[in-house]
């Protein structure tokens, strides 16, 4: 399956490179970022991004930086103030660089202030949560963007934004986080959308081709699930044995 998936993704990326353009449905949460940033500017409140304690050793942690880059660019374009909360030490210089680059590209370097914009809070779960709640209560952001997964504090983080009237957009691949985020946030980019959204943000045709490849592989997987269910119902374990090889 590894080889099949690799082959399908590679073929689709190659076709995209050769000029085939994929039409993808929009993700509501991504579109809402523009709206949220505009709202924050109108309310004269900052845009806040909660990177949480996500580290660079997890895929979600690295992916969160893509969303940080997008939110920072949108905020810089309209001259919104920006705050990033993070709890992983090694992410601090990377996040600083990304936000600084966003403000430089928007010709607003004078607005960038690493001390007030990049807030290293704590690597401890509840230490970070307490710090983030304080930050939200003091800064009262207009838009809070929460990319990445977290633990039991998810409901506190989501409710903190509601208490100050912030628009909230969350992204998570954690099945334990999603119900709480749906209850507490205005938009949730959930599951696979988190990964697909990163490609859509880039607008890179090859990355978009990769998303099409994902869908093709998913169709194959679903077909195998249905076919395997029928075979097992009929008493044959041929396919399940093949998959267990």
């Amino acid at each position: 399956m590894f080889v099949v998936c690799l082959a399908i993704l590679s073929i689709n990326m190659y076709l995209a490179l050769k000029g085939r353009r994929a039409k993808l449905r929009r993700i509501a949460g991504l579109d809402a970022i523009d709206e949220g940033v505009g709202r924050a500017v109108e309310l004269r409140r900052p845009v806040a991004v909660d990177l949480h304690t996500g580290t660079l050793s997890t895929v979600d942690g690295v992916l969160a930086l893509t969303y940080l880059d997008y939110a920072a660019r949108k905020a810089a374009e309209v001259g919104a103030n920006f705050v990033v909360g993070l709890g992983a030490a090694e992410v601090t210089p990377v996040a600083t660089d990304i936000v600084r680059s966003a403000y430089i590209l928007a010709d607003k370097e004078e607005m960038f202030n690493a001390t007030s914009m990049i807030r290293f809070i704590s690597p401890a779960q509840w230490g970070y949560t307490g710090g983030w709640l304080g930050l939200v209560a003091r800064e009262k952001p207009g838009l809070i963007f929460i990319p990445g997964s977290m633990g039991a504090e998810v409901m506190l983080i989501a409710e903190a934004g509601q208490w100050v009237g912030a628009m909230q957009i969350a992204c998570s691949t954690s099945l334990l986080n999603i119900p709480f985020l749906v209850a507490g946030c205005d938009y949730v980019i959930m599951g696979e959308e988190f990964y697909a959204g990163a490609a859509m943000i880039s607008q890179n045709p090859v990355q978009l081709g990769c998303i099409v490849g994902q869908d093709h592989f998913r169709l194959i997987t679903i077909s195998l699930v249905i076919f395997g269910s029928i075979l097992v119902t009929l008493g044959s374990k041929w396919l399940s044995n093949l998959m267990n090889l």
Partner: peptide
């Protein structure tokens, strides 16, 4: 959802 996450993760890593 897990199925989608697995495939999405693989594609993103690639």
């Amino acid at each position: 959802v897990q199925l989608g996450i697995g495939i999405g993760l693989f594609a993103y890593a690639l």
